[in-house]
Write a protein that binds this DNA or RNA. Sequence first.
RNA 1: GCCCCUGUGGCGGAAUUGGUAGACGCGCCUGACUCAAAAUCAGGUGUAGCAAUACGUGCUGGUUCGAGUCCGGCCAGGGGCACCA
Length: 879
Amino acid sequence: MTTERYNPRDAEPRWQAIWDEKNIYATRNDDPRPKYYVLEMFPYPSGRIHMGHVRNYTMGDVVARYKRARGFSVLHPMGWDAFGMPAENAAMERKVHPREWTYANIAAMKKQLKSMGLSLDWAREIATCDPSYYKHQQKMFLDFLRAGLVERKQSKVNWDPVDQTVLANEQVIDGRGWRSGAMVEQRELTQWFLKISAYSQELLDALDTLDRWPEKVRLMQRNWIGRSEGLHVRFALDPATMQNVPYAAGNELEIFTTRPDTLFGAKFLALSPDHPLAAAVAAHNPKLADFIVEARKIGTAQEAIEKAEKLGFDTGIKAQHPFDPTWLLPVYVANFVLMDYGTGAIFGCPAHDQRDLDFVNKYGLGNTPVVCPPDVDPKTFVITDTAYDGDGRMINSRFLDGMTIAQAKDEVARRLESQTRGNRPVAARQVNFRLRDWGISRQRYWGCPIPIIHCETCGVVPVPDKDLPVTLPDDVDFNTPGNPLDRHPTWKHVACPQCGGKARRETDTMDTFVDSSWYFARFTDPWITDAPTDRTQVDRWLPVDQYIGGIEHAILHLLYSRFFTRAMKKTGHTGLDEPFAGLFTQGMVVHETYRRKTGEWVMPSEIKILGNEDARRAVLIESGEDIEIGSIEKMSKSKKNTVDPDDIIAAYGADTARWFMLSDSPPDRDVNWTEKGVQGAWRFTQRLWRLVHEAAGIAKNAPAQRPATFGEPALKLRKAAHGALAKVSEAIETLHFNVAVAHLYEFANALSDAIGDVESKPEPGLAWAMREAAGILVLLFQPMMPHLAEECWAALGHDSLAATQPWPAVEADLLIENTLTLPVQINGKKRADVTVPRDASKDAIEAAVLALDAVQKALDGKSPKKVIVVPQRIVNVVA
RNA sequence: GCCCCUGUGGCGGAAUUGGUAGACGCGCCUGACUCAAAAUCAGGUGUAGCAAUACGUGCUGGUUCGAGUCCGGCCAGGGGCACCA
């Protein structure tokens, strides 16, 4: 009797219009119910959404809809990460203003997102390029400046020669710019820095409290922060070797080491090529000067950084061993010592550090092992090509001999701390971090202007709060590379706010990661005009309960946001430290690749698949030309293996796309987009529609009152319904969407069986159970397929909206079975089943098991060695 | 090089965290309906075997009444960091 098909092209826009009209997804800031803030990482407005967005926003939407049904006041906003390079590239290539380009893209993408049926509160929409947003960012920059969290300093920076801008360390991947892919060069520039390193320890410690973050992300951040404990040691330099060296710091050299225990294995000291002492020696030593120039090249723009040979240059200076002034160590300049870690100088213990060993083997400085591995005879222990960095006992180390590494470290620190030279201890325990301050200056137009004025007489002057925002000029040209703000004829020329004299604006704009470091806070009250946040709202809504996005932001965005939230707290804009209580990182959307014999990539929409499995092949639709089917890879424009969400929604509807995104693959793994898979999802939407309509036909005749008793088929259906309810709820709570999907399939199968029972085994309670079950089914899939749910909910005779219904309540009694079927194992292998009453005693179960034929046979008249009865689980007979 | 994660049918993946391995879906096979196809419906589908049964969660050892799950060693794939002293 199935006639009509569900038509998403008609139904989806219809329900979207109704949701809009009734404004059901708006969140009120005065809602007294418990709050739940679910947020997906906001998109860059590139112009079109891609499948990764579909997956990301579908997951967030399921959580939002589920929590709403669970009675929470849900905040689920959307905005745009709208500043950035592509807008300027478009301006250069297509002569369109970045603002126009960006806002046109936002309009297009908003339309696409709306077609997905997401339950978003669009009234809170923000775009980071809007002065009403970046005004507050400028205010916070100035607040941070006053709080000592901003610094302006000259530093070596990573310069991207293609984008013509500076990149943070985090934005350099394998020596290349994260966006342009160009080899990064080193340049000296004066930059604005946010002092994230002031929070190194705190950012590290607090990771332990983020128990709803993936362990993987926490580990990556831990490694990035890179805490190491060690000793800061002052080596005295032999005055005889320091003649003619104009070195301001005097006759000493400070080093940092994490292995003070190996001090008696020292063979040399080494300076970074950028160390002031190296420069001082080079002033009178042209060969060293040349060496330093060469060494710097290797550390920067050279391709093979990791393969660079360890090179050194002997300065002729000698340093005294801290425990023995007569023991002199040569001081080298070495290309592998970094200036901006520790003190820019090290001591080398070749026996226990591979780099140092490579170095001494090249320059013939020898090595002395000072840590002997367990079970090795110290007399025969020698190091040749491989340094030993494992555990052991101290040898060849005078008063340290026999100690463990930990004891030796402590002993060295203790002795050197109490020695003084020039009224200062010779050594101090020190903690070092790898994390550097966050350089935010970018030489770009399309970013948030840094609200600073440089005055010839007053120096660096903050723009007064009353003059905010500093807005971008509209009349800019992109015909030449570099920063359009810098070459704008008038924009940068202003009067100094302090003295009124001639001054110029800072023409650098902020890194766009600043924009995304606080948008989640702005969403809590995007309407407030005189402050970045309303403290009542931001403190009530934050932290974000569930944040969802890509793993690619594990360090950059998430670490910056954690820092920024703390900085906002310090300046009174929030009351908390951690912005994201729960984090989920979703996998990518991948797809097969296709290419012509000539090697050109071909889009999935351009080809047709013929045959199955081994006989599977692809041809170009247009010409019938054979196409090679390649590996499954991340969807990307370059390999053309993308599928356009618009096409999928036009062909199958948003619900089918959403359902497929959630089914099969666990959400944190990659999902392979296949035509077969989409068709499977499509068939299921049709099947649900039919099932619910059939069930509705039966339910029409159901009594209004719940029957006092239910027959077997009705009870079976009710158990299936409530079982599914319990399992789907749990799966959504734990974000195991693929498991929720599987339980919904199972439940649909059970409903289908029950519909068959109506004819074969009619009974009065079944119609009532059918109505209950169909209702539960619809509400269970509502978070995933909201349009279909509305259509089905209406078919069940409701004039309310499925999207606003409370989550159904489980009848716990139905989940408890009166009799249990336990598996019976003999010696750990399953051999039989036994059905016993739920409350049967262990003895009763044991007796029932021993009476089983299979058990009798296995025991062969003997009595069992042991019978293990695990209540409600399993029985194991040990024969 | 260091650190981390993952290996389960033809495929995507389940498995109450030590208790019936393979739920659910895809694919495939058989049947029904149809002039036929699509759609739909019913049944089957880890491997070997006619069967009883045996084997089976990357390999290998161990702990346990019982191991996909815990421990040791290896192999493969993926990711992060990489002169950080």
